[in-house]
């Protein structure tokens, strides 16, 4: 479950959106965050990303988050979509 088998992306670089890129990795989670609201919401974004990955049981992946000020619900949706694509589910 939650095995990332291919590189996948979800989202855009439009204002108020987020671009999530996921790649297979050998061991563990490696999250890279770049956000226009880093100072205000950096910690909250990382928390959300980790939460969604846990829900979807993703244990090994390299994830890049380029955030343009997306709301929490948008971040959740984009991460989930990227994971499903990375698993080859959609």
């Amino acid at each position: 479950m939650g095995k990332i088998i291919q590189r996948a992306t979800a989202g855009t670089l439009e204002s108020s959106d987020v671009l999530v890129t996921l790649e297979p990795a050998q061991e563990g989670l490696e999250i890279e965050l770049n956000s226009v609201v880093q100072n205000q919401f950096g910690a909250a974004i990382l928390e959300t990303v980790q939460e969604v990955l846990k829900e979807l049981d993703v244990q090994d992946a390299r994830i890049s988050i380029v955030d343009r000020g997306a709301l929490d619900c948008v971040i959740r949706a984009r991460v989930e979509t990227a994971v499903l694509r990375g698993e080859g589910e959609c």
Binding site: N39, Q40, F41, A43, L71
Partner: peptide, 9 residues
């Protein structure tokens, strides 16, 4: 409620 509470610098 929509954005979350921003951290203050």
């Amino acid at each position: 409620r929509i954005t979350g509470k921003p951290q203050k610098k």
